[in-house]
């Protein structure tokens, strides 16, 4: 039992110390696992803003994850074969510079979230879930039929993207980059939560009518949260592409949407650190159970069922003493 603030710090530190120590004792694979957890966590931090704070049950966040990945994949493909993306009155060439690929992934992910969000927010409740799921599937089929960029096969990235002054090919520097972005994502969400915007957003979840009464458009608040949420998840997708040096339509599949949701739920909805905790536990389960049985998803399913039916607050809910608090 501890306070939420302490739990947040402990989880955050544990992930970093784990990776650094693993690197010191020469376990490069463990560093990669920690990187995977950090990237999944970032995707979850994105979804948590929409799901936990905004109360929008998006079952289509794989779309933004995939878009982030495809932005990196497409830019890398053009950089690899020296064919410009566009050579009309301006020349747009491919690149593997992370300082360019990340912002682009965020922008394009945000635009997609704006499009999907403004359509989905015309409805709510069960409709919202079905529609986000359906639009997610649309992006999946789009990626499959986009034969110019690999179609069903996806694209290989021969060399991981670069970052000025760092050797991103080594496991630890790439972990530290992912971890830094995760930290940044957490800080953004924390700042948002404490801002008037975040307070109003939380209020919308409980009573949209009251928020409307004081002259705030609840739909606009939700749309902004949804777009930021998509942007964060797209950044995670961009990192995931560079981690695996491979992108494929599988990044868009509905199971990814489900898994990102699992990170959030396993850890604890609307808790700042929830998705990080959830992603760490998910990667740990994947590693241990996945090693024991190729059917490990059945145990994941049972665990998820138990959490939903009997332990609503997720792991953070069990660990944190005070109940009822929804933000840091």
């Amino acid at each position: 039992m501890m306070s939420e603030r302490n739990l947040t710090l402990v989880v955050w530190l544990t992930l970093m110390v784990f990776a650094v120590v693993a690197n010191m004792i020469g376990e490069a694979y463990w560093v990669t696992l920690a990187t995977r957890a950090a990237i999944f966590a970032l995707a979850g931090v994105g979804l948590n803003l929409a799901l936990g704070n905004g109360g929008m049950i998006s079952f289509g966040h794989a779309a933004y994850f995939g878009i982030g990945g495809y932005v990196v994949g497409i830019l890398a493909t053009h950089a690899q074969n020296y064919m410009p993306i566009y050579d009309g009155w301006v020349l747009i060439a491919g690149t593997q510079q992370m300082l360019i690929t990340w912002p682009l992934a965020i922008i394009i992910g945000g635009l997609a979230a704006l499009l999907v969000g403004s359509l989905c927010l015309r409805t709510d409740g069960a409709y919202f879930i079905m529609i986000t799921l359906a639009f997610g599937q649309m992006f999946y089929y789009f990626a499959i039929s986009w034969s110019a960029y690999g179609g069903e096969d996806g694209m290989s990235i021969y060399v991981r993207g670069g970052f000025p002054g760092l050797n991103t090919l080594a496991p630890l520097p790439f972990f530290l980059l992912s971890f830094a972005l995760l930290t940044l994502g957490l800080l953004v969400v924390r700042t948002l939560n404490k801002s008037p915007f975040g307070l109003a957003l939380n209020a919308v979840r409980f009573s949209p009518a009251r928020v409307e009464t004081v002259g705030i458009s609840s739909k606009r608040l939700k749309l902004i949260a949804f777009v930021i949420s998509g942007m964060i998840t797209a950044l995670a997708g961009a990192l995931f592409a560079d981690l695996n040096r491979y992108v494929s339509p599988a990044m868009f599949s509905w199971t990814i949407s489900g898994e990102i949701m699992i990170f959030v739920i396993l850890g604890g909805v609307a808790r700042l650190i929830g998705p990080v905790l959830g992603a760490i536990v998910f990667v740990a389960l994947e590693e241990t159970l996945g090693g024991l049985s190729e059917f490990w998803h059945i145990y994941l399913g049972i665990l998820l069922l138990v959490i939903v039916l009997f332990a609503k607050g997720g792991i953070a809910g069990v660990l944190i003493k005070k109940k009822g608090a929804t933000n840091v």
């Binding site: 049950i57 079952f59 739920i265 490990w296 399913g301 998820l304 069922l305």
Partner: peptide, 19 residues
């Protein structure tokens, strides 16, 4: 609420598929 329904039935998908 719908969130619990989605999650629990998603868990059922995992159990059915792997089973």
């Amino acid at each position: 609420d719908h969130l619990d329904q989605v999650l629990a039935t998603f868990a059922l998908i995992l159990i059915f598929s792997e089973g």
